[in-house]
Design a binder for these strands. Structure first.
Lengths: 194, 194
DNA sequence: AATGCAAATTGACAGTGTCAATATCTGGAT
DNA sequence: ATCCAGATATTGACACTGTCAATTTGCATT
């Protein structure tokens, strides 16, 4: 069934090699030639599956987004129905993912490394926005206010995770209340509406 | 007066060359060899002033942070005394800077490219945090609440600017109210405290 | 079985960061 | 004024990288 001509399924092998390289050595470390070496093929073999490095990194980023999206939807499926609780669950997932896989999160944040025209990427970006947009709409009456809230939630969440990843946070938890710091940000953002 | 041995002041020449390259070609484009070419010296001359590329990029980032800090303090000097107005002024400066020089803002966000031990960088980071920390303390009574607010403000601001830079914003202005979108985020963050 | 096409290899080129060895200039001592 | 020591710049090299062209290999369909 596989299209495997020589290798079996080189595309998949390159992606898992890339994932490992990404986790261990950072974005810089995920290079076409290193992935090829790790998959046991020659240095130019990947060109048949990814026209250039940009395409490889885009596919890798889409894979990471898919993981994050699945974890988010799984968590939401188990969360209580109250919008506030669901929003907390959503934030928790992203924060945990960034903590567990900082380099994957960094890759997802590097828009300059992506092929913006990739249809798989476009789909993924839409899918990723869906849950948070739904929660925003649920929390706030007007469509306009909802857009603002969603924007604020996205900006604050990604901004916070990157601060955390980059070590610009003294502590991850509030020393007094013991609750994670990102809870406090959510509190502030939702203080306005009941 | 200058320490100019061969070139006059190569370090400065490399930095301005780097700034131009950064603006025109992005971070990828600011390479040791390109800076050397632009300054009219051989490819290995920069090593005397910057031990490696990381050091060059760090110095460049510090320069950008200094520009942003100066513009911020200038704006605050002209702003009205009300904390809310001062906070708006501070956000306006960062948003405008990101819009005018997206690549400089991107460089400032790339903690992975910096030499964390650089004392000039450490100083600059402290100085950059100072105004926003002061405003947070002024806006909110307890030291703890102030820390949370400052964190939220930093995260939301940088997150928003990056969304804007990377083209993940449909519009930069609210089509109805006409006010810039980041105003709405500030509204949300400050809705809790009077 | 033969042919055509997709996949993989090999080899090359230009570009990069970084190092070692060498040459050159400058400022200050004699 | 001279001369020397050390900072500064050059040259050349090495190991990488992405990308391309030419070639070979292997599969599947005719």
């Amino acid at each position: 069934m596989k299209r495997g001509h020589h290798h079996g399924d080189l595309r998949e092998a390159l992606l898992t090699a890339g994932q490992h390289l990404l986790d261990r050595e950072g974005i810089e470390g995920v290079t076409i030639r290193a992935c090829a070496r790790s998959a046991g093929v020659s240095h130019a073999a990947p060109i048949n599956h990814f026209p250039d490095r940009r395409a490889l990194l885009t596919a890798l980023a889409v894979q990471c987004m898919d993981q994050l999206d699945r974890q988010t939807r799984d968590a939401l499926a188990l969360a209580e129905p109250a919008p506030r609780a669901r929003l907390e669950a959503l934030w928790d997932v992203s924060v945990a993912y960034g903590q567990a896989y900082p380099n994957r999160y960094r890759l997802m944040g590097r828009a300059d490394l992506r092929d913006t025209e990739d249809p798989a990427l476009k789909d993924m970006l839409e899918r990723l926005l869906e849950p948070i947009a739904a929660l925003g709409a649920q929390l706030v009456p007007g469509r306009l206010a909802a857009r603002s809230l969603v924007l604020a939630l996205c900006a604050a969440l990604t901004g916070y995770v990157f601060m955390m990843i980059d070590g610009n946070l003294a502590t991850a938890h509030d020393p007094d209340s013991g609750q994670p710091l990102h809870r406090a940000i959510l509190d502030l953002l939702l203080a306005g509406q009941g």
